[in-house]
């Protein structure tokens, strides 16, 4: 019985371990280590007119705080338009290397908004979002990081907010959109490794290299002794 319990415990531990990101996930990231990121306009597959603007306005600040050089989102759009690169299909068709040449971007972040469902029309107290974030290296075209989790974000609905909504429903709604979009962006970016300007960069990199080295050693052991699983 005690042995069974111990075995179960080991299984649980093993599951807990696999919940952390797979070793390979950040190999490309640390190989290229982007310093500067260009955030491209959000590709909108929903019917919401407000959502793309809200995401666009709330993506730069968490990325900057994560330690990256982010080209200011709105001025960058004007620079690209002046170069004949407009939003939509033209943007998708532009090779990533063009952005390195034009702005000095090490990586580009593509964001696609698949669904944006607010649970209440007036107060927008929660939203379910499905988005894809993909960070692509401009030199090689390799994907450095990706997130496509579907998330439900709750707003900080409070008494004062309710009063605000009664006084000026439109203002409250746009405030809510911005709040919800920011929370969605922050949640998605949680798995993006710290950038070079973040004081945790070295710690995270060392930790990753450690885990990767140990995994490689385990794999080498298994290969040299295939019967001993």
């Amino acid at each position: 019985m005690r042995q069974l319990a111990l075995a179960l415990f080991v299984v649980i531990l093993a599951c807990a371990c696999t919940a952390t990101p797979a070793v390979d996930d950040y190999a490309a990231f640390y190989e290229h280590q982007p310093r500067t990121i260009l955030v491209l306009p959000v590709r909108n597959e929903t019917t919401s007119a407000e959502a793309p603007g809200a995401f666009q306005s709330t993506i730069a600040s968490p990325l900057i705080q994560r330690g990256y050089y982010i080209f200011p989102v709105l001025p960058t759009l004007d620079v690209m338009r002046a170069e004949g690169i407009f939003e939509g299909e033209e943007l998708v068709g532009t090779p990533p290397a063009r952005f390195k040449e034009l702005l000095g971007a090490d990586a580009v972040l593509y964001i696609t908004l698949h669904t944006w469902d607010t649970s209440y029309a007036v107060l927008a107290s929660g939203v379910t979002v499905a988005m894809t974030y993909q960070l692509v290296d401009t030199s090689t075209g390799a994907t450095l990081w990706k997130d496509d989790a579907k998330r439900t974000i709750q707003s900080q609905a409070s008494g004062s907010l309710l009063a605000m909504a009664i006084n000026a429903a439109i203002t409250a709604m746009s405030t809510q959109y911005v709040y919800l979009a920011r929370e969605a962006n922050i949640a998605a970016l949680a798995s993006l490794p710290a950038g070079q300007m973040n004081r945790n960069f070295e710690t995270e990199r060392t930790r990753y290299l450690d885990v990767a080295a140990r995994a490689a050693a385990r794999k080498a052991n298994k290969q040299s002794d295939p019967d001993n699983e």
């Binding site: 600040s61 989102v73 709105l74 709040y179």
Partner: peptide, 14 residues
Amino acid sequence: RWPNYDASLYAIST
């Protein structure tokens, strides 16, 4: 400070 930055940016885009 950052939420204010986000809101101000949103105001420009709208």
